[in-house]
């Protein structure tokens, strides 16, 4: 296939970025999207140009590192798919592909397609943990957890923190990410104890950072590679309101 790329190039946080045109011949339909970018970078390196920088790690769809806007959609046209799991068979010969970084004030561009998602780490640091010394793994049945609760906790824990929700949201809200990270603990007895404090701390931290406010457009779930439910946001609101009323 012949593919025309319009790819975002930006030196650093302080400079202005712009789209740059590149053409790739002999792109195989079996290639993953990132392998296509590798191919571009090889071409650039051979001709002495600076390769395009982009985040990636596992390339198996589970780490949340990769994530770019492909033709104006976070992670590209397929549903529930990370950028690394998108393959070139989703495109046709002669297609033009726009590739831009996730854009939000809270996600400043470091270089090209690489963005700084430290904001997410800050939210986790505010309370996304269980603060007890767990010691060795306990006997599996000593703390009963129902199947439905375990499944619900796991559904929330499936969030890979890629940032597609923020990039998709018209308000650049981090509500889906924050709520998933709160809910994964709230469903389980180990996490329930600190639920009120955790929710208030994490929500307050999210509010302090440069993220916008959730207005329930539900776009985040549609473009989330893990299909994290927007009901996590409603649960977060419930826990937050409950904690505030109890105070």
């Amino acid at each position: 296939m012949k593919i025309y790329l319009k790819i975002w190039r930006q030196k650093n946080k302080d400079t202005k970025g712009q789209l740059e045109d590149h053409t790739l011949d002999n792109v195989s339909a079996e290639m993953s999207f990132l392998e296509m970018l590798d191919m571009l970078n090889l071409k650039l390196a051979k001709s002495g140009e600076r390769p395009v920088e982009f985040d990636h790690d596992c390339r198996e769809g589970i780490c949340g590192q990769c994530g770019v806007m492909i033709n104006g959609i976070a992670h590209g046209p397929l549903k529930n798919t990370t950028t690394c799991q998108l393959h070139m068979r989703s495109f046709k010969d002669g297609d033009t592909i726009y590739i831009e970084p996730f854009k939000a004030k809270a996600f400043p561009v470091i270089r090209d397609l690489k963005v700084d998602r430290t904001g997410f780490d800050d939210i986790i640091a505010a309370g996304g943990y269980v603060s007890v010394n767990t010691g060795q793994a306990p006997e599996a049945n000593s703390i009963p957890v129902t199947h439905n609760e375990a499944e619900a906790a796991f559904d929330s824990a499936a969030c890979i923190g890629c940032g597609a929700c923020v990039a998709t949201c018209k308000n650049a809200s981090a509500a889906l990410f924050t709520s998933a990270k709160i809910s994964q603990f709230t469903h389980l007895p180990q996490g329930k104890k600190e639920s009120a404090k955790r929710t208030v701390d994490m929500v307050n931290r999210m509010e302090e950072l440069d993220f916008g406010h959730c207005t329930n457009t539900e776009a985040c779930q549609i473009e989330c590679p893990q299909d994290i439910s927007v009901l996590n946001i409603a649960k977060m609101n419930f826990e937050y309101n409950k904690a505030k009323l109890k105070k």
């Binding site: 319009k6 806007m69 831009e100 854009k103 939000a104 004030k105 809270a106 996600f107 440069d210």
Partner: peptide, 9 residues
């Protein structure tokens, strides 16, 4: 304020 720069596409 939070949205930052707009997307080209």
């Amino acid at each position: 304020k939070a949205s930052g720069e707009t997307y080209v596409k």
